[in-house]
Design a protein around this nucleic acid. Structure first.
Lengths: 336, 336
DNA sequence: CTGAAAGCGCTTACAG
DNA sequence: CTGAAAGCGCTTACAG
C-alpha cells in the first residue's frame, strides 16, 4: 500500500496524490476526490520514514527520564503527553534508571530517529565525565537542528530549561517549619551529586542557619533517591537513636518510604515526629496523615518544557523558566 | 553527516561502510578500522528513517495506554521499558484518556511510523463501534507484518494477550472477605462497559451468591475509573446512608480515593468499615492502613506482553497468557 | 494546476 | 571480500 498505488487507482500522478494528501497546494476538485477515495479504499497510511527522509517535518519527540513508574516523573509526563498531542507529536519514551551509559545510548537512538526534540526530565549529575559524554551526543544533534530542553538544573548543558526553584522552596519550607516551633531537624536525602538534592539540602540548611539553628552532619542521612531509600534513611535515623522533632525528606517519594518506616518503628506522625516532603505528587494528599510539602505544578512543568522545545529558538541564548514552589502545610507536621 | 561522508573519509565504498557499521558481513580488518575511525571522528549516527526505508528491521515499539500517570499503567510500563531495552527497542508512548478517537488516531500514527509492534495496555470497551474502528486500523497494520498484543481482555480483537484472571481474582477476594465474617458488602466500580470492571464485579458477585449473600443494585456504585471516581463513589455510598461492613473498590486507584473519602466522612478503616482493592499497585502498602487487595505482577505483565509482541507469531492463532491474582490480606480489612 | 524527475540516506542482491 | 547500482516511499523544485 504505497502512495504509488493510490495514485494509480486514482489515475493521477504521484505528485498530485502527494499534494492532495498533505494539502500543501491546490488541486482540482475532481482529482482531489478521486485521490481521497482511493486512499480510503486502500486504507492507505503514509510511510513516516519515507516522509521524514524526503524532508517532511519530524513528528516525534524524545523523552528521557529515570523511571517511568516514579510518580514525580509520571505527573510531569502527563503534561508532556498533553502538549505533544496538541502539536501532533508522538512521544518516544526511555527510562534509564539513572544509568549514564543508558542515557547516552538512548540519546543516540533518538538522534538516529531524527526526533524533532529531546526532553531530559530529572536532575543531572554534578559530574564532569557525565557532562562530557552527554554533550558529545547532544551537540551534533543540536547542530543538525535538533532541539533539547530539560526539567531541572543541568549545570553545564546550554539548553532551554524549566527549573524549579529548589533552593528557595526548601528554604521557605524550613521557615514554615521553624514558625511551627521546630528547632531540631533531620534531613533524608538522595545522592548529593544530584543537583536537585544538593540544591534542596542547601536551601533548607541556609534557612536554618539564618535562624540560628544548626544541622549537624549526623542529621543528614543519604540514601537511594527512591521510596525504599526514604524508608532506609528513616530507619537509619531511628537506629542512630536520633529523635528530631521534624524530618525533611527531599522528595515526596522518599517521604512516603519514611512515613511507613516511622509507622513500623512505632513513631506516630505527626504526634511523635513531624515529616515534610517536596514536589506534591498527587498521592500525598491521600496518605495518613496527608503530607506537608512544597508544591510544584508538575503537570504544567511537563507542558512548558514541551512547548519550549517545540517553539522556535530565539537566537542562541537558552531560555530558562523558573518555577516557584509553594509550601503546603498539611497534617504531617504539627506545631511544637 | 551521512554514511557517504564516512565512506569518503575512510576511502571505501558506501556498501563497505554500511557493512562495517551494521556488522552484517566480513570486512577486511584495515578497511574496517578506517571506517570505524571515520565514523567516530565525524560523530556519525545512521538515519533510522533511511535504514527503515531500505529494509532494515524496525527498532521502535508503540504503546497505547489511557493515562501515563496512572500507577497501574506506570507499573506495567516499567516492565515494558525493561523488556524493550533488552531488545534494543525504543518505546513510543501515547495516552488517550480513554478517548476512542484518540486511540484510533494514535494507532494510525504508529502505523505510519512502521512500529514493529503495538501494545494496548488496559481494558477495552464492550462496544461494537469501538471494536470496529480499532479493527479497521489494526487489520491493515497486522497484514503488513505489524504485531499487536494487549494487556487485559479485548473481546473481539484477535491478538496476543496477557490477561489477568479478573473474575477468579475477585471471586477469591470475596471468599476471603466472607471468611472474615463479612456478609454486608458494597462495590465501587468504574464504567461497566469496561471489560475489566464487569469481569471483576461479576466474579465478586458470583462468589457472594454462592455463599448465599446478595448484593443489591443500590450497593453497586458506578463512578469514574480513577482516584476521584473512587472518592465520589464512597461519598455517594455514605450519602445514601448505607453502612456495609466491607467495601470492594474494583481497582486500588479507586480504593485510594475511597479511603480518603471515608476518612473525611469520619469512618475509620477498618474499624468502622473494611476496604479492599485490586491490582496491588506499589503505593498501597504505604497507605494507612495498608490495603487488602488482589495482587497482580504488573511489572512482569508488562514484560510478558512485550515479549509476546516481539516473539515470532506461531501460525495464525493468538496466544493468551493468563495471570493469576493473589489475595493479599492487609490491615484495611478486619474480621467481623 | 499537474506531471516527470531528482533526491533524501540507507541496505542488499548482484557481479566481480 | 568489495563495489556499482537498484530500490525503499515519499516530497518538492522545475517545467509545462
Amino acid at each position: 500500500m504505497t502512495l504509488q498505488d493510490v495514485a494509480r487507482q486514482a489515475e493521477v500522478s504521484l505528485a498530485t496524490a502527494s499534494r492532495v494528501l498533505n494539502g500543501t497546494s491546490q488541486v482540482r476538485a475532481d482529482l482531489r476526490e478521486r485521490v481521497l477515495a482511493a486512499a480510503a479504499e486502500l486504507a492507505y497510511t503514509p510511510n513516516a520514514h519515507a516522509q521524514a527522509l524526503a524532508g517532511a517535518s519530524r513528528q516525534a519527540l524524545g523523552v528521557i527520564c529515570h523511571d517511568v513508574s516514579d510518580p514525580y516523573f509520571a505527573a510531569i509526563a502527563r503534561g508532556v503527553m498533553r502538549a505533544a498531542a496538541e502539536h501532533g507529536q508522538l512521544v518516544m519514551l526511555a527510562s534509564t534508571n539513572r544509568d549514564p551509559a543508558r542515557e547516552v545510548e538512548y540519546i543516540a537512538m533518538l538522534r538516529a530517529q531524527r526526533a524533532r526534540a529531546i526532553l531530559l526530565i530529572g536532575s543531572g549529575f554534578e559530574d564532569r565525565g557525565w557532562e562530557r559524554s552527554m554533550a558529545a551526543e547532544l551537540d551534533p544533534y543540536q547542530r543538525a537542528g535538533g532541539r533539547v530542553a530539560v526539567v531541572s538544573r543541568h549545570r553545564s548543558l546550554k539548553v532551554d530549561a524549566v527549573v524549579p526553584e529548589n533552593r528557595e522552596g526548601a528554604a521557605a519550607l524550613a521557615r514554615a517549619l521553624l514558625d511551627l516551633g521546630h528547632r531540631d531537624f533531620a534531613v533524608l536525602t538522595g545522592p548529593l551529586s544530584l543537583t536537585t538534592v544538593s540544591d534542596r539540602l542547601a536551601g533548607f540548611r541556609d534557612a536554618l542557619t539564618e535562624a540560628g539553628v544548626s544541622l549537624g552532619p549526623e542529621r543528614v542521612i543519604e540514601a537511594a533517591f527512591t521510596r525504599d531509600g526514604g524508608h532506609a534513611a528513616a530507619t537509619e535515623l531511628m537506629r542512630r537513636g536520633l529523635r528530631p522533632t521534624c524530618v525533611f525528606a527531599v522528595t515526596d517519594v522518599m517521604a512516603i518510604g519514611a512515613l511507613t518506616a516511622f509507622r513500623e518503628g512505632g513513631l506516630d506522625v505527626p504526634h511523635d515526629i513531624s515529616l515534610a516532603g517536596f514536589d506534591d505528587i498527587p498521592i500525598v494528599g491521600d496518605l495518613t496523615p496527608p503530607l506537608t510539602t512544597v508544591a510544584l505544578p508538575l503537570d504544567e512543568m511537563g507542558e512548558r518544557v514541551t512547548k519550549l522545545a517545540l517553539r522556535e529558538p530565539r537566537g542562541h541564548r537558552s531560555r530558562v523558566e523558573r518555577i516557584t514552589g509553594e509550601v503546603v502545610l498539611r497534617a504531617s507536621t504539627a506545631p511544637l
